[in-house]
Design a protein around this nucleic acid. Structure first.
Lengths: 333, 333
DNA sequence: ATTGGCACTTGAAAAAAGATAGTGCTAGGA
DNA sequence: TCCTAGCACTATCTTTTTTCAAGTGCCAAT
């Protein structure tokens, strides 16, 4: 068990290191704690035994270990309301009724990336609460037309589709078929429903049923694809811990790896902090992330920064965004 | 005027430096030229007087100056047909009829970025040859609907629009008005036409005409916005000349500056090479770019790399892409 | 015009020297 | 038992020195 003073020392070291990125020596802390540097040193030694602190070399000051950050995040920090200036800027985005939800998300995360100099990630996915509302086809010349897919929550996608040797009549018949039979289906189940309910019978109504079926299958497939948005990658360059080309190459590579990013999702609804090796992206970064879930959409928002990250600020910012995003659509309905 | 041998030497130096990024000494060249290193040295001195070569320090080998690259590009290189492997990969993209033009562009430029380890940029803009074909509105609940804009060349955009206290009737009336009066207008003139032809009379048909007008104005405004796609930024990290964090910060910053990128356009239709200070992006890079123009779309494609760039390859690749893009839509019609 | 030879220059890499910030430990005092 | 002053020790960072290799410019000879 740590004494109060030990906790205080750990906290001060974390805060100081977060700010200045330099190992913290005993002299600096003794003023704050009204005791001699020798005392601080012996306390530090104990914290090092607990593996909460580390040295970069035998006679250096201390830096927090991964465990140290963990302890700080779990027990020592207390994220408060975000500051007035930040809040003002963010509220401008959320109060703007002309913006769609996903624009709000993207813009606010972009703002956060700028404010904090970290990188932010928005993973969005049309929620399974979205049900197919309507398929529409608008022809614009002999062989091409636009398929428009609308869900009950107001998501829309369009895709150009082309046919040769298929009459408009037949396409329209297919669309009617879809609208009659599978409207109301959760959007990510549509393509499979298409396969089992439409494919078997479409031959009766349409000559080129193979082609037509495949085309529409693709339309729905595209719809349910996830989208990823990474903002403020360049901010990584500002962090002193990422000052080697190799490090940067590595992280930038990972930030473009769609698979990797898609997998940062969790099932948890809280704000989660993954420090260093706890995350799969890179052992030198921390990811703070949370899920958001609105009637029309769900996904993950995340901030990626160095382990030496301003945890209080980032957590409170993310909390604020999450709350506002989730509230926004409540107002809406 | 340069002698043949001097041209040969310049060319060899450029090619060697392009490949190895190391100043080229006289010894290396004398084998190729069947003469002694002293001879090569005196020729080099002459080329340096012409400011075609530079030294990095008093006793280093030579590297091409900006002027040297310029001379090479203008008089010495001869871009040939791209190699079979590259061609094969690219043709897979162009032959794929399921891909829209802009997907083709993006995919092929992405491929080039990978193949060459440079960065590629696609600036696209719906061409003024696009004329408004149809506006469509699909309602999906009391206050929200989807506006769909289609041009005669098959470009489609959609946007969610919301109204309070405006009846569906009135919106439909507005749409009919638009379809009756300004269909056929070049797409980038639509919003101004809206202002002069619809705004004055809409009050007669619609109560909340101010709101409705503004909403549709925004829809068309959005449509004609340019889009920019930058692919392979990370490749910059592979180039040895960009091995300092500051350099990278600078270039990455510029590659995100939409304004700067939009302005790389030229009026010229050829392939243009802007070496170092000749371009506005960064004095350490070269931009090879060209305009493409198809019935439905026009824009610029560009490759950004170090001045020490494989000019022959890049030029021929870009030529190939340009040709294929422009041909593709010919087949189509 | 071309070449071999030689003195000279420069940067890059390796080694040495000095300076600094911090530690661990011990012995004495509250 | 806890705290503190003092001191020897250590690792890194910076600066200086040394060494090394690559390449040049120039000159006299072919």
């Amino acid at each position: 068990m740590l004494t109060e003073r030990q906790k205080e020392i750990l906290k001060l070291i974390v805060l100081n290191y977060i700010q200045l990125a330099k190992p913290v020596g005993s002299k600096l802390l003794c003023k704050r704690l009204n005791c001699s540097s020798a005392t601080v040193r012996s306390e530090m030694a104990i914290l090092e035994d607990w593996e909460l602190l580390e040295k970069t070399h035998t006679s250096s000051g201390r830096i927090p270990s991964e465990k140290g950050y963990r302890y700080y995040v779990d027990y020592l920090m207390n994220p408060k309301e975000i500051n007035g200036e930040d809040m003002l800027k963010l509220q401008i985005i959320f109060k703007n009724n002309e913006l769609e939800l996903s624009d709000c998300l993207n813009q606010s995360l972009k703002l956060i990336a700028e404010m904090t100099s970290y990188t932010s990630i928005v993973l969005g996915k049309t929620s399974h609460d979205n049900h197919l509302k309507e398929v529409n086809v608008v022809p614009f010349n002999d062989s091409d037309m636009i398929a428009i897919v609308i869900t009950d929550k107001g998501h829309v996608e369009h895709k150009k589709i082309s046919f040769k040797n298929v009459s408009l009549e037949e396409i329209k018949r297919t669309v009617t078929l879809i609208n009659d039979l599978i409207v109301g289906t959760p959007i990510d189940e549509v393509s499979s429903k298409l396969e089992f309910e439409i494919k078997p019978i479409i031959g009766r109504y349409v000559k080129e049923h193979e082609l037509v079926y495949n085309t529409f299958y693709q339309v729905f497939q595209d719809f349910s694809n996830k989208n990823i948005n990474v903002v403020g990658k360049n901010n990584i360059l500002k962090q002193p811990e990422f000052n080697s080309i190799d490090k940067i190459k590595n992280i930038f590579g990972k930030l473009e790896d769609t698979n990797l990013l898609t997998n940062i999702e969790t099932d948890n609804n809280d704000i989660k902090v993954y420090i260093g090796k706890e995350n799969k992206l890179d052992e030198d970064v921390t990811i703070v992330q949370t899920k958001y879930r609105t009637p029309s959409q769900e996904g993950t928002i995340a901030i990626v920064g160095p382990k030496r990250m301003d945890y209080e600020r980032v957590v409170s910012l993310l909390e604020f965004i999450k709350k506002n995003i989730e509230d926004k659509e409540d107002d809406y309905e």
